[in-house]
């Protein structure tokens, strides 16, 4: 029986949507917060939408709003973006195999590999009979749509209603805590999670709040390398 391309797509979209529901709610709130925040700095109208389409990196977008007051300082902008987004390198590394042979979709799958899309796709395989590539494509696309729509709506709310936005960027903290708690349910990952917290905390104490991300990442890499044997054993246990 011949299956039309339209049916394959529809089936994949239907399979993908339920997985994105938690992100729908989380991203809408977070996008809303971002839109309100950036429009409170005088960047209303098209700005939240534009930034959420081309940058599409939640935490960096919040950090960027904080940096706008400092003006256009290319070097510090590049370094800050590298530091905040260096974790993407690790996401990429763990998706190398899954994104093999995804053809024309591949550039978009890589472009849209944010924390939440990653956390869905690294753990989820679609059901039998669902096209894997289209499934991954729709998870990635739906998540970005939620983010862009949330940002846009937030931007307009921010322009219409004057808002005391102090503390609204805590939405990001809340999101990471929720992701952390979700990951914590997987017993295999707990040592890694603790290593991450410990290294970051240690480096925050030593290097202060503004320059500790890179040392923290190096510290994590070093610890993971030293503890490779026991950790690998733990992961490969059935």
């Amino acid at each position: 029986m011949a299956v039309s391309p339209g049916n394959i797509r529809k089936k994949a979209l239907k399979a993908a949507f339920p997985y994105t529901i938690p992100v729908l709610t989380g991203f809408f709130v977070l996008g809303l917060a971002f839109g309100i925040l950036i429009s409170s700095k005088g960047y209303g109208f098209f700005w939240p939408t534009l930034v959420s389409i081309v940058v599409y990196a939640g935490s960096m977008q919040f950090v960027a709003v904080g940096m706008m007051a400092g003006g256009l300082e290319p070097l510090s902008i590049i370094l800050m973006t590298l530091m905040v987004n260096a974790r993407h390198l690790f996401y990429g590394l763990s998706m190398l195999e899954k994104y093999r042979g995804t053809g024309w979709m591949k550039p978009y799958l890589i472009f849209g590999l944010c924390d939440e899309t990653y956390s869905i796709l690294c753990t989820t395989e679609p059901a039998e009979g669902v096209d894997k590539n289209w499934f991954r494509f729709f998870v990635t696309l739906l998540n970005q749509i939620y983010w862009v729509v949330g940002s846009t709506v937030g931007g307009f709310i921010g322009m219409v209603i004057p808002f005391n936005t102090t503390g609204i960027d805590f939405a990001l903290t809340a999101l990471f805590i929720v992701i952390f708690l979700t990951q914590w349910q997987n017993v295999k990952g707990r040592p890694s999670a603790l290593i991450g917290i410990f290294c970051a905390f240690l480096c925050r104490l030593i290097f202060g709040p503004d320059g500790f991300l890179i040392p923290a990442m190096l510290c994590i890499l070093l610890t993971m390398t030293v503890l490779r044997q026991p950790l690998e054993k733990r992961y490969n246990r059935p």
Binding site: S94, F176, G196
Partner: peptide, 13 residues
């Protein structure tokens, strides 16, 4: 395999 967990921990901090 191991980094995603550590990175989210780091981001919370």
């Amino acid at each position: 395999l191991v980094l995603p967990y550590a990175i989210i921990g780091m981001l919370v901090v």
